[in-house]
Simulated assay, not measured.
Amino acid sequence: MRKTVNLEVNGKKQALEIEANTLLLDLLRMEVGLTGTKEGCGEGICGSCTVMVGNELVRSCLTLAMQVDGKSVTTIEGLADGTTLHPLQRKFLEYGAVQCGFCSPGLIITAKALLESNPDPSEAEVRDAIRGNFCRCTGYVKIIEAILAAAAELRSGANA
Rank of each mutant, 00 (worst) to 15 (best):
V9F: 04
M66V: 15
E31Y: 08
V51K: 02
N55M: 09
A160F: 06
T50N: 14
I18C: 10
L7D: 01
V68F: 13
D26F: 15
Q14A: 08
N10R: 00
I143L: 03
R131F: 08
S48G: 02
V51G: 06
P121G: 12
S117C: 10
I45T: 11
D81K: 12
A146F: 13
G139S: 09
T74D: 07
L64H: 12
E31G: 04
L62T: 06
S72G: 05
L64I: 13
R29N: 13
M66C: 15
S48W: 06
A65R: 14
Y140F: 05
S117W: 03
N55R: 07
F102Y: 14
N118E: 10
S72L: 12
C100L: 08
G40F: 00
V53R: 02
V68G: 03
A150R: 06
A149D: 08
T50W: 14
V5E: 02
E56Q: 15
A146I: 09
L34C: 11
N6L: 10
V58Q: 12
V141G: 07
D69R: 11
A152I: 04
D120H: 12
A151C: 13
A160V: 07
L93R: 12
Y95C: 14
R136Y: 06
I147D: 05
M66W: 11
K91D: 06
L88I: 01
K112T: 05
I108N: 00
K71V: 03
I147Y: 00
A15Y: 04
E145W: 11
A152C: 10
I144F: 03
G139V: 00
C41K: 08
L23M: 11
C46Q: 04
T75A: 04
S60V: 03
E153Q: 13
A150W: 01
M30D: 14
P121R: 09
A129G: 06
V32T: 01
A111I: 08
H86I: 02
P87F: 07
C103V: 00
A152Q: 15
H86F: 05
A146Q: 02
R2H: 09
E123H: 09
E39C: 12
